[in-house]
Every structure is written in structure tokens, then in C-alpha cells.
Simulated assay, not measured.
Amino acid sequence: MPSRAPSRPEGTITRGTTHPNRLRRMDRWLAAAHGPALRRSPTPPSAVDLGYGAAPWTAVELLERLRTVRPDVRVHGVEIDPERVAAARAYEREGLAFVQGGFEIPLPLGEAPRGVTLIRAANVLRQYAEGEVAPAWARLCARLAPDGLLIEGTCDEIGRRHVWVALGPEGPRTVTFAARLATLATPSDLAERLPKALIHRNVPGEPVHAFLHDFDRAWATAAPYGALSARQRWVRAVRALSTSWPLTDGPRRWRQGEVTVRWAALAPRGGPG
């Protein structure tokens, strides 16, 4: 890992919109899905909150949530805007630091000797062109430890709807859709939160469009279960979806308002990954 940040960090300053608990659904999934890798790390694992925004809440929350899995985890909030870094340093504590940087992930010398265990880039690439996604993914994945994970995706302003891609050092693995079910009219409402790699591909002929179409159909068929709860309706719809799409999770995650699909099934035709 580099010992110091380059003179010009890689990336562009984002709008910086952030709210407490905005990424709680993503964090909950991370703790469950990546907890074993965090626990296996032979050294204190390093996690990065890339592009945390105008306020440091998401980095603070990431530390608190990951420490329920691995108490010695260290979190770095990385921001390209030096004024945001300076403001965030008032929130530093043992295990939490803020540094200026971008896609190069400029951790200090001695940090993450095996690579970074976790990088979370939420609402960062949405402002970039679709053609810039694959190079950014490759740059970030190159910083991962052998069992590391990159999460890149988008959510709404208060964390009700999320879609994210999970990537390992080799590239994209899965896509996860997550929602506060009480606010969801149809699963295709999540289309507005598709990450940059997919949002322009929600058109006929593309796999993600077919997936959301099938999801809406399964949701409509499961309507009678809505009398029990939105959760029961979601679980029944996802169970029906699992007969034709390669889901990687099961009822325990479905009950959380989530569903995870293999990337290969949704990958854009001729797109990244």
C-alpha cells in the first residue's frame, strides 16, 4: 500500500449529501455477509468508507457496526475534499481516522499490509459516466486483500431503498436489492437506485430490466400475502423469483427486505464486469 497520498487524488468531489443511518441496510448486510472474512483476518482488518460526504456520520456508524463483528477493526473515512477531511477529524477516535484521497485509497504506511478488507463506496460513482465504472472498480479491487470485498452502490437520502454490487479482487460477484418494505409499491421502484453500471440498462433487452419485470410479476402474484405483512409478501415473491433467477441468499436475508442475485445474471450486455 502507498505510504502517502498522491499530489492529486483520483476522483471528483461529490455533492456530499449524507444523513445518520442512511447506510444502515448496507451495513447490516456487510456485517452478515463479510463477517467471516473480518473474523479470519490475521491482523486487525482495515475498512474504508470512500466518499463519506460533507459529514462523517457514515464512517462513524461503519466503525460501530463492524466492531460488533470484529472489535479491533479500523475504519478510514476517505474524502477527496480537504475541507471535509479537516472537519471530520474532530470525530476521530481509536480505530477511526480520516484522510484525503480518492480511488487510490491512500492509507498510511503500515496499514492493511495484506490489502484492505472492506471498501464501501456508496453514492460515489453515480455522478460518473457509465464508461468510467469499470476502471474505477478495477482500481479499487486492486486495493483489496485476497479475501477483501468492495461494495459499490446507491441509496435514497434516508436509506429506505438500496441497490449495490459486491466485488472481490477478481471483479463483480453479486447485486443486492434492499428496501424498507412498508414504503415499497412494487420491486421495480428500486430501479431509481440502481448503481451506475446498471441504471442506464433498465430497458427492454437488458437482463436487469427482465429481472425487475419478473420481480414485479411475482410481487403481484403474492399480493394476498400482503394482508399478513409486506415482509410476507416480499418473501413469497422472492421465493417465486428463485425458480428462474440465480439468487445467492435465502429466507433469513429475504425477511430483512433483501434479495441478492449473481452479477453474471444481471450484467449489462457489453458493459462492465
Rank of each mutant, 00 (worst) to 15 (best):
R24Y: 08
A88D: 03
V163P: 04
C141S: 02
A121P: 12
T183W: 11
P56I: 09
L190P: 13
P224A: 06
H76S: 08
F103E: 13
S188F: 13
G95F: 12
A54T: 11
A112M: 04
W57G: 02
E157Q: 11
P42M: 00
G205V: 05
V175M: 03
R252T: 14
Y52V: 14
A47Y: 11
V259G: 05
P135H: 03
Q232V: 13
A166F: 01
V238F: 03
E111F: 11
P6I: 15
W29T: 15
A218W: 07
A220V: 15
H34L: 00
T174A: 00
A166E: 05
P36S: 04
E64N: 14
P56K: 08
A240N: 03
T117S: 15
R139P: 02
F103H: 13
A265D: 10
L266Q: 04
C141N: 11
A223S: 13
L107W: 14
D147G: 10
L38M: 06
T248K: 07
I199V: 10
A88I: 15
R70I: 06
W254K: 11
W137G: 00
P113E: 00
S229W: 09
R67Y: 12
L38T: 09
F98G: 07
L118S: 00
R252G: 00
G115W: 04
Q256R: 12
A138Q: 12
W164G: 02
T117Y: 05
H209E: 05
V238D: 00
Q127A: 04
A31T: 12
G16E: 02
P82F: 12
T43P: 02
C155Q: 10
R114D: 09
R180Q: 10
T248R: 15
L228E: 13
S229N: 04
S188P: 08
T183A: 11
I158M: 02
R143P: 07
R74N: 02
P268R: 02
R93M: 03
G53K: 07
K196A: 01
H162P: 09
R4H: 08
A264G: 01
Y91T: 13
E192G: 14
R15Y: 12
A31P: 14
V163K: 02
G11K: 11
E92A: 12
R25C: 00
R15W: 14
L144T: 13
Q256N: 03
A240W: 06
P6A: 01
P187F: 07
T260K: 01
L149D: 03
D189S: 14
A5Q: 08
F215G: 01
S242E: 02
A33H: 10
D49H: 09
A37K: 07
G115F: 03
R262V: 15
A87I: 10
K196S: 01
G148M: 06
P45Y: 06
A218V: 08
I151Y: 02
L241D: 05
R22N: 03
L50K: 03
F211H: 05
H34T: 09
I80P: 15
P44R: 04
G53Q: 07
Y52E: 00
L109F: 09
R74L: 02
A191V: 15
E83N: 09
S242D: 01
G257I: 09
P135K: 08
A220D: 09
A59Q: 11
F211G: 01
H34V: 05
V60E: 06
R193M: 14
H76P: 06
P246E: 04
D147W: 07
D189T: 10
D27K: 04
A136N: 06
L23D: 10
R160P: 03
E64C: 13
E94C: 07
R89E: 05
T43K: 04
